[in-house]
Computed example of a mutant assay.
Amino acid sequence: MDEAALGSDQQRRTKEQLPLTSAAYEGRPADIAHARGLARGFLGQVQAQRGLPLSRRVMDGVQLVVSELMTNACKYAPGPCMLDLRLTEGSISITVWDSHPVLPVAKAADLGRVGQHGLEIVMAVCQGFEVYREQAGKRTTASVMMADDSDGDVTGRTIPEPARTWRRS
């Protein structure tokens, strides 16, 4: 087999084997901490198996987003929820499915408001955010970029707000 074919085969296997971690939860408050632990383990797996160095910003950001999305699922959706963590090209994708069909709405910034800042936090940390209504419930996906420049800022980010996509299906 020539080197070009070997390289192509190796790239295809690499894309097929991108790490994915999933877990189902009952929607209890204790599940939030379990989900953060799952995220830490997943990030460790990405570093160990892929040899990808992840900055403190990425490590903390992914765990924060997992915590906020799982908190919303456990607080506002009755019953079970699911968490998927996936390594994509250049980012970590965090998806939470819950049983509540109502799409979240980001509130206007209000420093006097106590609580309900989770969605604001997620949007500030992530470079991508999507919410889809499902046949049962909804699926929320956020992505945290892995590349940092020397100052710890996300490479290539030219606007202060993250990209947001709201879709209804």
Rank of each mutant, 00 (worst) to 15 (best):
W97H: 13
I92V: 08
D84N: 15
V66P: 06
H100K: 11
G44L: 09
R56E: 13
S169G: 12
Q63F: 08
K107S: 12
E161D: 14
T88C: 13
R167W: 09
T141E: 07
D148L: 07
L54I: 01
C74S: 10
V102A: 15
V144G: 02
A48N: 11
A48I: 11
R168Q: 11
P104S: 08
V131H: 03
F42R: 07
L103T: 00
M123R: 08
M145R: 15
V66T: 06
T95H: 10
P104T: 04
S169L: 14
V62L: 01
P160D: 09
G41I: 08
L83H: 00
T140V: 09
Y76R: 07
D84P: 11
A106D: 11
G115K: 08
E130G: 09
I92M: 06
T88M: 13
R86M: 12
G115A: 05
T88R: 15
G118F: 00
F42C: 05
V58K: 02
C81I: 00
V46Q: 01
D98F: 01
P53Q: 10
A73Y: 03
M59Y: 13
V105A: 10
L54Y: 04
E68R: 02
P78K: 14
R139W: 06
D98T: 03
G156Q: 03
C74G: 09
Y76M: 01
K107E: 10
R50E: 09
Y76G: 02
R168V: 08
A147V: 09
V154Y: 06
H100I: 10
Y132R: 14
R133C: 07
P101L: 01
H100Q: 13
K138I: 01
L85R: 05
R168S: 10
